[in-house]
Design a protein around this nucleic acid. Sequence first.
RNA 1: GCGACCGUAGCUCAGUUGGUUAGAGCGCUGGUUUGUGGUACCAGAGGUCGGGGGUUCAAGACCCCUCGGUCGCCCCA
Length: 422
Amino acid sequence: MAKIQTPQAVRGTQDMFGETEERFAHVVATFERVRKLYGFKGMQLPVIEPTAVFSRSLGEATDVVSKEMYTFEDRGGDSITLRPEFTAGIARAYLTNGWQQFAPMKLSVHGPLFRYERPQKGRYRQFHQIDAEIIGAAEPAADVELLVMADQLLKELGIDDGVTLQLNTLGDTPSRDAWRAALVGYFNDHKGALSEDSLSRLEKNPLRILDSKDPKDRPIADAAPVIDDYLSGEAQDFFGAVTAGLDAAGVAWTRNAALVRGLDYYRHTAFEFVTDRLGAQGTVLGGGRYDGLIENLGGPATPAVGWAAGIERLAMLLDAPTGREMTFAVVADAPELDEEAQRVANKLRREGVPVFRSFKTNPKRQIESARKASVDGLLFIRPGQQLHITLVQGSPYALRDLIAKALAHVPDGYQTASGDGE
RNA sequence: GCGACCGUAGCUCAGUUGGUUAGAGCGCUGGUUUGUGGUACCAGAGGUCGGGGGUUCAAGACCCCUCGGUCGCCCCA
């Protein structure tokens, strides 16, 4: 019989286990906790959407829609796309469910997203994000609340060190249009000095020249017209209110006038929390105000602002594996004590104490497998309801803590004799 | 889409200028020893050298293609 080829994981996907999975779960759990502190409701959304949800919101012609989405026709002939982002799907749900009645809405989600891109550090084809949005609030206070929440989240994850909040405004529609026109004129005057990449950006997405990495472009980009000279009074007031709110909340930020968004539906606030610890993928959390998006989807003009952050990237920045609960292995000191050991283990588990039990019957084998499962303590069951407790080296706990915890939950009648942990 | 580097046992890796039956450590299985508990020793299982094609008397080593991985560029909703 011929050997069959072992299947491989799809390129750019990952199987998470052990420490990787623990870090991931810790990010999600922390997000869930913090978002509740700010009154953001959770939601669950489909992973698949009609392709139009994304092509209409992002624009047919953009690279992202034309070559970076997982799009396919289903058996009924409908064009379906695996969601490449959360925002468009949330906007769609807002419209199809008539959530205008709840506006302003504070929403949060997390889950997998799909983009057909070349994998590299912190970038996968199936990746995961946490996401927070406020829909139906035009006030700068909404932007501030979102940013303060993001700041607290990063602090609680312990990764705020080396991360800076970069902030910019794209102004309202008139401001943005005037600035854009000025930029195109300016870059056209300097065409000869621009890199090849930037020449094509000039055609497709001129704002992006501002954050070009090419050293050739830097002097020109740095001397380009700044949005500040084109901001309307209202736009200035809006940005002023956002920065004042951040200052009042004690959130540190720096102005980055080159921080832009390619899509036209973005207005006013744009921001990114950036780190220098992730190589080319430095953005750890990013977002902005997208007052034009819901109209693009055929809905009423609706102000909205939100952010998203890659869970994998956040997980990579976490200091150490997250702590787990004190875990015992209950070991029968002789094969005939196995049933009694099981009884004790079940009692502990019902009391909420994590317990490891080996599938082997030989005591020595049980100890070996318990060590591999990295338990904190070995709880030996001996004849006459005697307990013997040993601390496993490497555990962060102390022997007396183990004894106290075991005694508090073990069945009545047990006597303890502690070991020395060596 | 473009570029660089990489792909040998479950894991981490060694394999000299291509040359006989492909190695180590850890892990796994079994045994001996020890014996209130991370012991030591012995033995064993496990490899299409990512896949395909080519050069050669001879390829894990060289060439081509392909599939993956890593890191950049591009893109970044």
